[in-house]
C-alpha cells in the first residue's frame, strides 16, 4: 500500500517544490540578468532584488482604469499571467516525472504561449490608443514566424525522442545515448531564436527600452497600472524563467533528478540553478554584443530559425536513409 502511494506523494511534493521555486525565483532571475547586463556594460546596475521591489511597489499602488477601457480590461493581464504560470507548472525544472508531466505536450505549450500572446495583444488594443495597436501588430508578425519555427523544431525532438511531451523528451535525452548531432545543434539554434523573440529580448525587442516607437511588448502595457501591470510584469519574468527551464530540460537534461527518487533531487536542484545561472550570464553577453533589429528584419531572423528547424528534420531523414 505504502509502496504504491509513495511515488505519487513524492511526485506531488516535487511538483509543489517546483511551483514554489518557479514563482519565488522568477523575479530574482530577471534581477540577475539585469545585473549581469549592467556589469557587462561597465555600470554598477540595480541590486538583484530590484524586480521584487518593483513588484511590491506595484502591489501598493492604486490601480487606475482608463475611462475608455471596456469591462474586459482586468481579464487580459489575468489571462496572460495564468497561461504563462500553467506553462511554467508543466515544464520540468530539476526533476522529471512530476504530476503535471503527462500534460506537458509541446503543442499544448505552444497553445499556452499563444494564449498569453493573444491576451497581451488584446490588452494593448483594449483602451484604443495607438502605441498599443503598434505593439500588437508587431507581436502578431513575430508570432507568425515564431510559431512556425517552433512547430518545425518539435518535429526533430519527436523523431529523436519518440515523445512529444517535454518531460518525455527530457527523459529520452537524459537516459538514451543520443550523442551530439548536427540536427540537435540546428534545433538548438532555432529554439534560441524563438526563445529570444518570445521573451522579448534583444535582438527582437528591448526590455529596457524607453522609446515607445521601438517598443513591442512594453508598448501594449502602457495603459496598465497597479496590480494589473504587476500581473503583466510578473508574467514577463515567469516567461524568461519558463523558456530557460524549457531549454535546460530539452538540451541539457543530464543528471536531472527523478521525482520518485528523493536522493537525486539535490543534484538536480543544484544543476538547475547552475543552468539558469549560466544562461543568465550568456543572455546579457549576447544582448550587449548585438543591436536591436529593425522590425522588418525580425521575420528574416525567425525565417532563418524556421529554415534551421526544417534542416534539422531533413538531416535526420537523410541520416536515417544512409544508416538503413
Amino acid at each position: 500500500m505504502m509502496a504504491a502511494i509513495l511515488p505519487v506523494l513524492l511526485a506531488v511534493l516535487a511538483t509543489m517544490v517546483h511551483a514554489a521555486l518557479l514563482f519565488a525565483l522568477a523575479p530574482g532571475l530577471m534581477g540577475v540578468v539585469s545585473k549581469m547586463r549592467a556589469w557587462a556594460l561597465g555600470r554598477r546596475g540595480a541590486p538583484v532584488v530590484q524586480p521584487y521591489r518593483q513588484l511590491y511597489k506595484l502591489l501598493r499602488k492604486t490601480t487606475l482604469i482608463p475611462e475608455t477601457a471596456t469591462d474586459a480590461y482586468p481579464y487580459w493581464p489575468l489571462a496572460c499571467f495564468l497561461s504563462v504560470s500553467v506553462a511554467g507548472l508543466l515544464i520540468p525544472s530539476f526533476v522529471t516525472g512530476m504530476v503535471t508531466a503527462p500534460l506537458s505536450d509541446f503543442i499544448t505549450l505552444i497553445g499556452l504561449f499563444a494564449l498569453a500572446r493573444a491576451a497581451t495583444m488584446l490588452g494593448g488594443l483594449e483602451t484604443g490608443f495607438s502605441f498599443g495597436g503598434a505593439g500588437a501588430q508587431r507581436e502578431a508578425l513575430f508570432g507568425v514566424f515564431a510559431e512556425g519555427a517552433l512547430l518545425v523544431t518539435i518535429l526533430t525532438f519527436a523523431l529523436i525522442a519518440h515523445a512529444t511531451t517535454v518531460d518525455g523528451i527530457a527523459v529520452a535525452f537524459r537516459d538514451g545515448h543520443i550523442g551530439i548531432s548536427v540536427s540537435l545543434a540546428f534545433a538548438l539554434a532555432a529554439t534560441l531564436a524563438v526563445a529570444l523573440t518570445e521573451t522579448g529580448r534583444i535582438p527582437t525587442d528591448n526590455p529596457a527600452g524607453h522609446l515607445e516607437l521601438a517598443m513591442v511588448h512594453e508598448a501594449m502595457l502602457l495603459e496598465y497600472s497597479g496590480r494589473y501591470l504587476l500581473l503583466f510584469e510578473y508574467a514577463a519574468m515567469l516567461r524568461l524563467m519558463v523558456w530557460m527551464s524549457l531549454i535546460g530540460a530539452v538540451f541539457l537534461p543530464f543528471w536531472m533528478g527523478r521525482a520518485g527518487d528523493v536522493l537525486s533531487w539535490p543534484l538536480g536542484l543544484a544543476l538547475w540553478v547552475g543552468k539558469l545561472g549560466g544562461m543568465a550570464v550568456i543572455l546579457p553577453l549576447f544582448e550587449i554584443s548585438s543591436a536591436k533589429m529593425r522590425v522588418f528584419r525580425v521575420p528574416e531572423f525567425l525565417g532563418v530559425a524556421m529554415l534551421l528547424g526544417a534542416l534539422a528534420a531533413v538531416f535526420l531523414f537523410v541520416a536515417e536513409r544512409i544508416g538503413s
Binding site: L64, E67, T68, F129, S130, E223, G226
Partner: peptide
C-alpha cells in the same frame, strides 16, 4: 479597489 482616470492616449 480601482479608480477611473483619463487614459494617457499617447
Amino acid at each position: 479597489g480601482t479608480r477611473a482616470a483619463p487614459g494617457w492616449m499617447c
